[in-house]
């Protein structure tokens, strides 16, 4: 969710290192990049590191930016990659968890929770407890599903933009998105299903 109202950046000025334009770029994108990092890592200090590293890398390699994708897509890509590096450093003995099932089939999508919790009072969805349930659920996703869900559903990128940012095919994005969404739905259904019994 990039703020659409702000004046579009002048890419030429950005690439020539115009300080005012670079400042505007950082101002426009620091919120979304921080959000992405925070969702990927669930840790504020690490998210701050990723935020800084993302812009440092971006500023250093701006001249190599070829404009085949949007500037925002490019920044998201750097941020996701930086986040993955942090995750790798965190647990060097464990390789990055990938969803094992192939990208082509939808095997392993489970639909076991059938509780209609949509009718819960709105306050339920805004509570601090819910906030932490949401964070925990997203952290349980394998990284390759997490990044797709964050960019597509939380940041609101299109399927094509998500594919460009993560260097995936559109089909892969759709498959991963389906899996990510269904896993989160299951997790939230367990929690909200229990909450239902209180009403």
């Amino acid at each position: 969710m990039i703020n659409e109202e702000s004046e579009p950046l002048n890419l030429k000025k950005v690439q020539s290192g115009d300080p005012e334009e670079l400042t505007r770029m950082v101002q426009q994108y620091s919120d979304p990049i921080y959000r992405v990092a925070l969702r990927m890592l669930n840790n504020q200090a690490e998210a701050e590191d990723v935020l800084q590293e993302t812009f440092i890398k971006a500023l250093r390699s701006l001249e190599n930016f070829e404009g085949r994708s949007n500037l925002s897509t490019w920044l998201y890509r750097i941020a996701v990659n930086e986040s993955l590096m942090v995750i790798r450093k965190r647990k060097p003995e464990v390789s990055i968890i990938h969803d094992d099932t192939g990208d082509e089939d939808n095997e392993g999508i489970s639909v076991s929770q059938i509780v209609d919790w949509c009718c819960l009072p709105e306050s339920e969805f805004l509570s601090n407890e819910t906030r932490s349930v949401l964070n925990d659920a997203i952290q349980k996703l394998p990284e390759n599903l997490r990044s797709v869900f964050i960019l597509r559903d939380i940041e609101g990128l299109s399927i094509i933009e998500t594919a460009q940012a993560l260097e995936l095919t559109e089909t892969n994005v759709k498959t991963r998105l389906l899996r990510a969404r269904m896993k989160l739905r299951e997790e939230l259904s367990v929690y909200f299903g229990e909450r239902m019994s209180e009403y």
Partner: peptide
């Protein structure tokens, strides 16, 4: 319905979140 709501809650949670 619960899938839509799941996406909706996540979007809503992040909507005004700033660094």
């Amino acid at each position: 319905n619960t899938l839509r709501k799941t996406i909706d809650i996540y979007q809503h949670q992040a909507e005004n979140e700033k660094a």
